[in-house]
Amino acid sequence: MDILLLVSIAQSILAATWRMATPLIYTAIGEIFTERSGVINIGLEGIMLIGALSGYVVTSYTDSLFLGISSAVLSGIISGLLFSLFTVTIKANQIVVGAAFNMIGTGLTGFIYRTLYSGGSTDKLVLDTFPSIKIPLLSDIPFFGEILFQQNLMVYATVVLVPLAAFILSKTAFGLYVKAVGEHPKAADTSGINVTLIRYISTTIGATLAALGGAYLSMAHANQFVEGIATGRGFIALAVVVFGRWSPWGAMGASLLFGVFYALQLRLQAMSGNVIPYQFLQVLPYLATLIVLVSLKGRGAEPKALGKPYKA
């Protein structure tokens, strides 16, 4: 193999890395807010599916990416409020509620998708997705140009999202309250902070970003909805949060690492023909998640009140 070919392979893998990391970044950043406030949402997978479907459906009927994204955001907000209702207000076991959300997400999206698209109106099946935007001049930089400056809008948005999340958590009163509520809710309560409100907001931020992560899959990555399109990314995002030590920058790094595995999987699949059975590559992200979880010793950064309903 000559050098040029290797370089071009590396280039395409790296470009795909960011694209594949993007849904994880959205979802994991959201879950950081949720978990930092003391709520764990393992229903991310289901919420991603709901976001993916609502974005897809609205876009396919209105031909407007903007309306599609808006409806994904709306579905995320509704999911987040419902999740908060059960976990914060009713104080039910968060893991059980999360498992239920995954079932509802799977069942409901499958049901709606089959109901709407079984009639054979195939022209609606494929969307015009977010186009990739070449940034003038920068995209012409050899090698890095394609990796960094020829992506679509939702990928670029992560460049804003991560620092913004980090800023909110470390430099705003809201971020301070979120951290206090997740570490020591009673201390926050006696300081006059509304624990319930903070947890509702944080959980809803988490669900909304998960829905966006899902919408990315159907509207920017693929150009249609497929049942179960999240393929475990909701759970991988949970591992990303742990691996990133509950910090936005850490989660971005962890997401990019997983992005590499996804990109490798895609690239090798395309290259190897039938030499390596595709399942061996397909399994890579899942194995990587297991290895990451095992390699983490201790969990010093875990919010103390994580998973515990607050009773005044």
Binding site: A92, V97, A100, M103, F111
Partner: peptide, 23 residues
């Protein structure tokens, strides 16, 4: 022609009802 995947959602709602009721 009602898609049978709806069952998953029904089961999810059953779980939510159970946990809410137990509280």
């Amino acid at each position: 022609k009602v898609p049978s995947v709806l069952v998953s959602a029904i089961q999810g709602i059953v779980i939510l009802s159970v946990v809410a009721f137990s509280v």
